[in-house]
Write a protein that binds this DNA or RNA. Structure first.
Lengths: 157, 157
DNA sequence: GTATTCACTGGACAACATGCGCAGCAACTG
DNA sequence: CAGTTGCTGCGCATGTTGTCCAGTGAATAC
């Protein structure tokens, strides 16, 4: 576990210019192509790289409204609530957190009005006691990983 | 704006098997290669597909602890706080939300003990009045987009 | 000290995918 | 009706991939 500097440089390079191939990456990094291939294979079997799926923007799909909902769950209903939320497409993410029976989920909706429908869908379920929703207005730091990769590659390991 | 069924099938296919190329995708979808290429180009210039960067797992990088922190910001200090949080690698994501001067951020840390250091880093800044942190225990629904793509492609458009 | 293992290099090869352009065709629009 | 748009099916030159191999240096084991 852990990555070295070459891994870090490779990850940052791929994050910045995903379209380059193994060959171009090896040129940029100044190492042999086989090395890059071996590192990539290792990073993927390590689980460091989960995949190269397309990053889809929900806003461009017609869902420009994002919200976070904190849900309070009735004791013992956690499994049912999880299964319920997994069936709602607008639930992009669900976490269980510290605090008795609390969950946090990320929602998207077509509009503020549509958000009401989504919230009703989400909380219209027996096991959910209470829900608090915060609508996202701005996203000053979009989901990122490069700074963490640089830190992980730089210091430790 | 909006995607049709072919776009949807293409996105789902790419999300499930990112390594396949344009040619293989065209074979699977039963359309000409040029069509897939044109759709991909359009989806990317549309902004529907933001990119194909590697999805890196912070846990595999040595940061297995995730937490969400709700921050209350002093009036007028928002810009400074944003700039401050952007410099902290462990802040993976930052949103401003409804509620006077509230922000929500996603944090990672090397351990529960290390989380304390990260939180101190985050809240040890003038403009932040109060912080509430929820540690993530489980992640029943990891960040996903496929169900939403299917819904966007299926009904409306 | 010597043997073994490991990671990286630099090279080679065939197979494959890509970017590109083209003509034909169907559906829609003004 | 002519113009536009999107899809098809084709070909080509080029670049990349997957996969070998032998050689080298460093670290580790005996």
């Amino acid at each position: 576990m852990g990555i070295d500097q070459l891994d870090g440089r490779l990850l940052v390079l791929l994050a910045r210019e995903p379209r380059i191939g193994v060959l171009e990456a090896s040129r940029r990094l100044g190492v042999a192509r086989g090395t890059v291939q071996a590192r990539l294979d290792r990073l993927q079997s390590n689980g460091v790289i989960r995949g190269f799926g397309p990053q889809v923007d929900p806003a461009a799909l017609g869902y420009p409204v994002t919200a976070f909902a904190t849900l309070q769950i009735r004791q013992g209903q956690g499994t049912d609530v999880r299964a319920h939320l997994a069936t709602v497409p607008e639930v992009l993410e669900l976490h269980t957190t510290t605090g008795s029976g609390d969950m946090l989920c990320r929602l998207v909706a077509r509009s503020n009005a549509d958000l009401q429908r989504v919230i009703d869908l989400v909380v219209g379920f027996d096991g959910i006691v209470r829900a608090a929703t915060a609508i996202v207005m701005e996203n000053p730091v979009p989901l990122r990983i490069i700074p963490l990769v640089e830190q992980a590659a730089g210091d430790g390991d």
